[in-house]
C-alpha cells in the first residue's frame, strides 16, 4: 500500500522538489529521473510490441484456413489438407488424464506443505524437491517417461504413458499454487476452529479448503494450459505422427483407448512444420493459432476467475 503511494505520487513529489530547490543538481536529478522512467517504459513496450506483431502475423497467415471445418476434420492426404480434429481430441485426452492424476496428488501435497508440515528437515526436503521438480528440463521428463512408464511399467507408448509423464511434469505447478492459496487463508480462522475442538482435517475440510478454492483452481487451470502445450514429454511416450480416427458422430469424441498412441496438437504442429513437406503455410499457421488460442483462452479463464473471486472475497 505504502509503496503504491510512494510510486504513484512520484511526479507530485518531483514537482515539490522542483518548487523548493531548483538548483542545477536537482534539475539534473529530475531529468535523469524522467529519462530512466522513459527508457524503462519503452523497454517494456518493446517487449510487448513485437509479440503483438508476431501474433498478428500468425493470425493473418492462418486466416485462409480458420473455419469450423478446420477444427472438426481430420488431417488428409499426408497432412497437406483437412483439419486438426484427431490431434485436437488427442490433446484433450492427454490434458484430462494428466489432470485427473496430477490434481488430487498436487492439491493434497499443497495441503501437506501448508497445513501439516512443521519446520523440520522433511519439510525442507519436500520444498526443495518441488523446486527441483519444477526445474527438470522437459526432455528429461520425456526420458523419465520412457524409462519408467513405457519400459519399466510396461505400459508401452500410449495415451496413458504420455499422460502420466505430463502429470509428473505439471505436478509442481499445482503444488505451488495450492500452497499459496492455502497460505492466504488467515491463520486466525484455523485457530478459531481448533479452539472449538475441530481436528486439523475438519478445519481444513470445512474452512480452509472452501476459502482457497479460487487459488487452487487457478493452479489447476495453469496445469491444463501447460499440459496442452507441451511437446517434448510426449515425443517418445505416446504421441504418434498420424493415426486414422473417426471424425464424424459420437465415435469421434472417443477415438483413443488408454493404451493407444494418439496424435496431439503440439506434436502435430511440430511435424507439419518441420517433418512433412508440401504442407501449405496456412495449415501450419492455422494449427499454431489454434494451439495458442487454446492455451491463451485457458489462461484468460484462469485470470478472470481469479479477478471474479477476488471481487467477492468473504473476509
Amino acid at each position: 500500500m505504502a509503496r503504491d503511494a510512494a510510486t504513484t505520487t512520484g511526479p507530485g513529489a518531483g514537482d515539490a522538489i522542483g518548487r523548493f530547490a531548483a538548483g542545477p543538481v536537482e534539475r539534473r536529478k529530475a531529468l535523469v529521473e524522467r529519462l530512466v522512467a522513459w527508457l524503462l517504459g519503452s523497454l517494456t513496450v518493446l517487449l510487448v510490441l513485437p509479440l503483438i506483431a508476431i501474433l498478428a502475423t500468425l493470425v493473418a497467415k492462418a486466416w485462409p484456413v480458420l473455419s469450423w471445418a478446420f477444427i472438426t476434420q481430420n488431417p488428409q492426404t499426408y497432412m497437406t489438407a483437412g483439419g486438426i480434429w484427431a490431434p485436437l481430441i488427442g490433446t484433450f485426452y492427454l490434458v484430462f488424464i494428466s489432470l485427473a492424476v496430477a490434481a488430487p496428488i498436487g492439491v493434497l501435497a499443497g495441503v501437506y506443505l501448508n497445513e501439516y508440515a512443521g519446520e523440520n528437515w522433511t519439510t525442507r526436503l519436500v520444498t526443495l524437491a518441488v523446486v527441483n521438480l519444477a526445474g527438470v528440463p522437459s526432455i528429461v521428463h520425456a526420458l523419465f517417461g520412457v524409462g519408467a512408464f513405457v519400459l519399466f511399467a510396461g505400459i508401452g507408448r500410449s495415451v496413458l504413458a504420455a499422460s502420466l509423464t505430463l502429470a509428473v511434469m505439471t505436478l509442481p505447478v499445482i503444488i505451488t499454487s495450492t500452497k499459496e492459496a492455502l497460505a492466504a487463508v488467515p491463520q486466525s480462522f484455523r485457530e478459531a476452529c481448533w479452539n472449538m475442538g475441530a481436528s486439523r482435517w475438519q478445519t481444513i475440510r470445512t474452512i480452509v479448503l472452501p476459502n482457497a478454492t479460487s487459488g487452487i483452481l487457478t493452479g489447476v487451470i495453469l496445469q491444463v494450459s501447460r499440459a496442452a502445450g507441451e511437446t517434448a514429454p510426449i515425443l517418445f511416450t505416446g504421441a504418434v505422427f498420424y493415426v486414422a480416427v473417426p471424425d464424424r458422430g459420437l465415435a469421434s469424441f472417443f477415438p483413443y483407448g488408454l493404451f493407444d498412441r494418439c496424435m496431439a496438437l503440439s506434436y502435430h504442429l511440430f511435424t507439419i512444420s518441420t517433418q512433412v513437406t508440401g504442407v501449405s503455410e496456412a495449415l501450419q499457421y492455422g494449427t499454431a493459432v489454434v494451439l495458442i488460442g487454446l492455451v491463451i483462452s485457458v489462461n484468460l479463464a484462469s485470470i478472470s476467475l481469479r479477478v471474479y473471486l477476488r471481487s467477492r472475497k468473504r473476509w
Binding site: Y112, L133, L151
Partner: peptide, 24 residues
Amino acid sequence: AIIRLCGWSAIFFVFAIFFFVFRE
C-alpha cells in the same frame, strides 16, 4: 496419512526421475 504420502511424493518423483533416467 494420504496427505502426508502425497506431500512426500514430490521427493519420490525427483528420485524416480533421477533413477530411471540414470538406469537407462
